[in-house]
Each structure stands twice: as C-alpha cells, then as structure tokens.
Amino acid sequence: MKKNEVPQDEGNLSKSNMKELVYATDENGNYTTELSSGWEPKTIALSNSLEDINERVAEALAKVKAGQASPIVYFMELNKMDMNILAGYVEMWKWRIKKHFKPKVFKGLSDRVLQRYADAFGISVLELKNFKPE
C-alpha cells in the first residue's frame, strides 16, 4: 500500500475523531507510517457485525415477550455476550445457565443467583427481575 493511497474514508473511528496507524510505502518504496481515518470495506464489515447483534437482540426480545425465554437471554445479547462469556462472568456452568434461560426456572431464582447475572449485565437485580419488554 502506498502512502498516498492510505484510505481516508468516513468510518466508525472518524465519528469519534480517532485515527489509526497503518504501514505504507513512500515515493521511494521505503516503509513509513500514516494515519487513516477509516476504510469503507472495514466500515461495512463492522456494520455487518453490529447489524447481526441488533438482530439477535430483537429476536431475544421477541422471545422474552412471547414467554419463550427469560430476560437473561435478552441481556446476554444486549451485552454482546455469548454463553461462554456469560459463564465466565457469572461463574456458572453453561448447562446451568441454559436452564435459567427458561422463564419458569428464572422466576424461581434466588436473589443471590440473580445478583451474579445483574453484576454481569451492569444492572440491578430489580431491573432484571422486573424486566418487561414493551
């Protein structure tokens, strides 16, 4: 990549006034560094991942609404987590978490267990317990 070809597209970084450093060659073919504000293919790739997350959140919300999933599923997706990550934060086995995905089981959870989830999601136990999808 040549220095004058380093892309300066509008991107997710330029919105927050950040620039990243890339390596590129100068007019004599020697390596140097240049700042880049963004590159369209990357912006599209990132948007694709974010869209995917938004879809997962919406799906989870619909399931909670329909009484097919507990709020834990929704907050897990909202926090961009998967089961492995959530298991790390709440320090529980995955099979146990999976049970807590069921609304019936969720209703019977003690505050102590709920507290672990609330901490992982950065919310209060009450917010988790009383979560009502609109």
Binding site: M1, V22, K42, A45, L46, S49
Partner: peptide, 23 residues
Amino acid sequence: AQIVRMQEEIGTGGGGFRFIYAA
C-alpha cells in the same frame, strides 16, 4: 465480515499484518 475484521481492524496495520511484516 468476520474474516475481514480480523484482517483489517485496528491492530493489524492493514492487510492482515502483511505490511508491518514487509516493513
């Protein structure tokens, strides 16, 4: 999209680290 992000996101210096290696 995930492949492209791994290859190009902040931290690789572009082209899946190939430009840093060339430097």
